[in-house]
């Protein structure tokens, strides 16, 4: 599709260096936030360049697989254990999938477009597509897009019983990126193409179709990965941006989503 935008910043939860007390000064709010909410909101603020940076955002688009899972689980356990009596509403309130997006908006009373995709591991790319459409329509100029996923021991146990193998990929965490319609001084890469293919293609054909004569790097997702968590493709996107920052001319990201859908994204270096 002929839509493009510029990656201004991208941050993963591991790269957050600020103190949570500085980013979220409200102690009560910090106490109410679950581990994954803290992770998602902190990563988002750091990516936006601090709390003030949220003011300059005109769309907040998040993606998650199972949302705030520990809160959902806590409410469910309490509900069963306490026979539906005198339940604490806090975990229910926090359990909705759009909690992180809402919290980010609330921090600075940002009234902009705010939406959450819950489409297994396709959600991050759906969020990017939404951002591209908003910018193509001149509805947004600077969009915050992020993915966050939480894992719990129960969920691990259930997936183990279902026969999913754990093979190295951590599927918990947060990744946020700020995208702009026009290149800014701090732009790192250009997202120049996003295609949904009608079926799988070979890596060789993917390179041929999307390299545009450049010295391109191809990144693909592990075919066997459990396709529930958008943070996995979000990390791949972050890796692509990092490769551009390190000097690559062009990065092609080919995500096969375990055979369910095929997405191709092309990142280019600025001014190329």
């Amino acid at each position: 599709m002929d839509m493009e935008c510029f990656v201004e910043n991208i941050v993963t939860d591991k790269q957050v260096t600020s103190d949570i007390k500085e980013l979220i000064p409200d102690a009560g709010l910090r106490r109410r936030m679950s581990r994954i909410l803290k992770s998602a909101v902190m990563t988002a603020i750091e990516c936006a360049g601090g709390t003030d940076g949220i003011d300059g955002i005109d769309a907040i688009i998040t993606a998650t697989g199972l949302g705030c899972l520990s809160d959902s689980e806590r409410f469910l356990r309490n509900m069963i254990a306490d026979s539906e009596q005198l339940l604490n509403p806090a975990p229910f309130i926090q359990s909705t999938f759009n909690t992180a997006g809402g919290q980010i908006a609330m921090l600075r009373h940002n009234h902009c477009y705010n939406v959450t995709y819950v489409n297994r591991d396709c959600g991050f790319e759906d969020a990017l597509l939404d951002a591209l459409m908003r910018m193509a329509d001149s509805q947004s100029r600077r969009v915050l897009v992020g993915a966050f996923d939480e894992q719990t021991p129960s969920q691990y146990r259930i997936m183990e019983r279902m026969g999913f193998w754990r093979h190295g990929t951590c599927r918990e965490g947060s990744v946020f990126t700020t995208l702009t319609a026009m290149p800014t001084d701090s732009a790192i890469a250009e997202l120049s193409c996003m295609d949904f293919l009608s079926g799988p293609i070979t890596e060789e054909n993917c390179m041929k179709s999307y390299s545009g004569g450049d010295d391109a790097v191809l990144l693909t997702n592990d075919m066997e990965d459990v396709g529930l968590f958008p943070v996995v493709p979000a990390r791949l996107f972050a890796e692509g941006v990092r490769k551009i920052a390190e000097g690559a001319e062009r990065v092609i990201i080919y995500d096969r989503h375990g055979g369910d859908r095929q997405t191709v994204m092309v990142l280019k270096c600025i001014g190329h």
């Binding site: 909705t96 939406v115 959450t116 995709y117 819950v118 489409n119 959600g123 859908r261």
Partner: peptide
């Protein structure tokens, strides 16, 4: 075709 899911309460 294209398929996605939205959850904003």
């Amino acid at each position: 075709g294209y398929r996605t899911t939205i959850s904003t309460a």
